[in-house]
Design a binder for these strands. Structure first.
Length: 598
RNA sequence: GGGGAUGUAGCUCAAUUGGUUAGAGCGCCAGCCUGUCACGCUGGAGGUUGCGGGUUCGAGCCCCGUCAUCCUCGCCA
């Protein structure tokens, strides 16, 4: 007989009745009847009820065994009497009558309950992550994660992709997020950086003659956390394809994502091909480059209808070149006064000066602004929004960028508030045709996304077009308002690279200095190539229906990028710092606090 | 760095307008209980109301400061 078990805690059935078995697991719950004692023993696979009779020599000990201790029982599998069958358990038709027991690992009193799924302070959960991970919902999320990743590997491999590794210690990249740096011992004053993504490596792999690459790639970015953004590190399904177009990338990703989302969720998944939405249209209609298409509301332009009206606030915005955006909402005219007041407050909280509305309720127009509008204008608005009695139109007036952005927030809020969002579907879309350049805060032309993207129209566009009009073969995939990934057809031509950087104000020497590997490689015969890298953590988050990314990561850091269980980041020995040729230069505040602590 | 929310027993929460000894459920400890499965019953322990200051006859509650956590803006090619 095996040292610890002949079966797992989820394995035994009626067929095993009469067998002598050994199982090991955690004490999930104890039901002590004074005489007979029932213990639910739990492992990764399930629960099995163990019965302990008062006549057993180890009976006395059982009374004091705490939940979450690990124990090994040897005993006989018996049928439960009919009334005692538990249909909630897979093993509920049988139980084990214990003959021998061995304590394997005793548990102290636990700081929060494992067997019960009650809410619990997250700091405590992170400090005792090993206990938290025993709890069913988190445990299931991690199991789901493992299965999804295994399936991704199968699907990608079946599509002809090769899984490859790329370096974790690499050089700092000049663009993008803040890098995590690793000081070099051998080269004083020099640093490695952890990769923000294997971007340049995968492009080099294409240039090295590999055709289809993928990797479940760790990415490191030293940026602040959000609910859907874990600080420190996260994983991408990184991929790149040689001799490929944008459509080739879409096709593979649609296949893989549709399969994954269909297989690992009960929600209804959009049929493929997914909706393609140009960036410009997304901003104008949804006020966002990651619209939640479950929300049926769309924004329309009502600028011209307010140009000559008596409502000075709006007419003034239009006169100074601004925009009026409207959102028509069917059937919400009956909402309370408080609803409309709350919506105005909300609009103000996201930066709007106000929120106008027209409410066609019981045959009349109820609105603070209706009195400024002619009958003709009201009718034209009605026609624009396609509304009638019982409906409402909301209005936002501001410069175009702000109006779209605020309208996007209002659209989301209305969708949430009015319950317009179907929780049982996954709505995917591709956002395409991102602009190549945009104006930065100083009014200078800058790359709006990724300097490696191929401009649409190639060299001719770079030479002849207004840079702000040039589009890139740059795309995002969005699911239910979550940006899963960005990708692009890459710029594989050294001449185009130099020209593209020149427009952003950088000379050839900058390209050579900042991207030496790619610039060099592309001069020795580069294949046109394209790729993308969907966020694995976010995919699991959507599949597990979790609002927080930490619920799908085994050992996440907190918002301040600390691992409360391991104590990272932590102090190191002076010798280690000295070997790396570093000196600490701490903020005054921290030095002062350290002195006071002494 | 900015904004918001929260902070009361080991855990989750309550405590009327600022008013007597800060309560409940779970957990813990003790006792009872031989068919439960969130077992049940009885009793008990457990609190610097995050911390510091202020207002007040009186503060868990009001004010100021500070710390912590989460959400968010900035940031995330």
């Amino acid at each position: 007989m095996h040292r610890y078990r002949t079966h797992t805690c989820g394995q035994l059935r009626k067929e095993n009745v009469g067998e002598t078995v050994k199982i090991s697991g955690w004490v999930h719950s104890v039901r002590d009847h004074g005489g007979i004692i029932f213990i639910d023993l739990r492992d990764h696979y399930g629960l099995t009820q163990v019965v302990i009779d008062p006549s057993k020599p180890f009976y006395k000990g059982v009374e004091h065994w705490r939940v979450e201790s690990t124990i090994c029982f040897t005993g006989e599998v018996v049928n439960r009497i009919a009334e005692a069958v538990n249909p909630k358990l897979a093993t509920g038709e049988i139980e084990i009558v214990a003959n021998e027991m061995e304590m394997l690992g005793e548990a102290k009193v636990i700081p929060f309950q494992v067997a019960k799924e009650e809410e619990c302070n997250e700091t405590l959960r992170l400090e005792y992550r090993f206990l938290d991970l025993r709890r069913q919902s988190l445990h299931n999320n991690i199991v789901l994660r493992s299965k999804v990743i295994a399936r991704i590997r199968e699907l990608m491999t079946a599509e002809g992709f090769m899984e490859m590794q790329t370096p974790i210690l690499t050089s700092s990249s000049p663009e993008g997020a803040r890098d995590y740096l690793v000081p070099s011992r051998i080269h004083p004053g020099k640093f490695y950086a952890l990769p923000q993504a294997p971007q340049q490596f995968k492009q080099l792999l294409m240039t090295s003659g590999f055709d289809r690459y993928f990797q479940i790639a760790p990415c490191f970015r030293d940026e602040d956390a959000r609910a859907d953004r874990s600080p420190g590190e996260f994983y991408q399904l990184d991929m790149e394809m040689a001799f490929a177009t944008q459509e080739d990338v879409f096709e593979v990703n649609e296949k893989v994502l549709h399969k994954i989302f269909t297989e690992f969720s009960d929600k209804q998944v959009d049929a493929i091909p997914f909706t393609r939405l140009p960036y410009r249209e997304a901003i104008e209609k949804y006020g966002s480059d990651k619209p939640d298409l479950r929300n049926p509301l769309i924004m329309q332009d009502a600028t011209e209808l307010f140009r000559n009206c008596d409502f000075k606030a709006f007419a003034g915005v239009v006169a100074s070149g601004g925009t009026v955006k409207t959102i028509a909402v069917k059937g919400c005219a009956g909402e309370s006064r408080k609803f409309f007041d709350d919506m105005i407050k909300f609009a103000q909280s996201v930066g709007s000066k106000g929120l106008g509305y027209l409410r066609w309720n019981e045959g009349e127009v109820q609105s603070p602004i209706a009195k400024f509008l002619s009958e003709e204008t009201l009718n034209a608005l009605k026609q624009l929004g396609g509304v009638s009695d019982g409906d409402v139109m909301f209005f936002i007036a501001d410069n175009e960028k702000a109006a779209c952005e605020i309208g996007g927030h209002v659209r989301n809020e209305l969708g949430k508030h009015l319950g317009l969002i179907d929780p049982n579907v996954f709505k995917f879309c591709w956002i395409v045709d991102f602009p190549m350049y945009e104006l930065d805060d100083d009014g200078k032309i800058a790359f709006s996304h990724n300097p490696f993207s191929m401009p649409q129209g190639g060299m001719e566009a770079l030479l002849s077009k207004d840079p702000l009009e040039i589009l890139a073969y740059q795309y995002d995939i969005v699911c239910n308002g979550t940006e899963l990934s960005s990708g692009a057809v890459r710029n594989h031509s050294p001449e185009l690279m130099v020209k593209a950087f020149e427009i952003a104000g950088y000379g050839k020497e900058v390209v050579e200095a900042k991207f030496p590997a790619l610039y060099k490689a592309f001069q020795y015969g580069a294949p046109p190539h394209a790729g993308i890298a969907p966020g694995v953590d976010r995919m699991i988050m959507l599949l597990a229906d979790e609002p927080n990314i930490r619920e799908v990561i085994t050992f996440p850091m907190n918002q301040k990028a600390q691992d409360l269980l391991m104590g990272a980041p932590g102090e190191v020995e002076f010798n280690q710092i000295r070997d790396l040729h570093l000196k600490l230069n701490l903020p005054k505040k921290i030095e002062k606090a350290a002195e006071e602590a002494e």
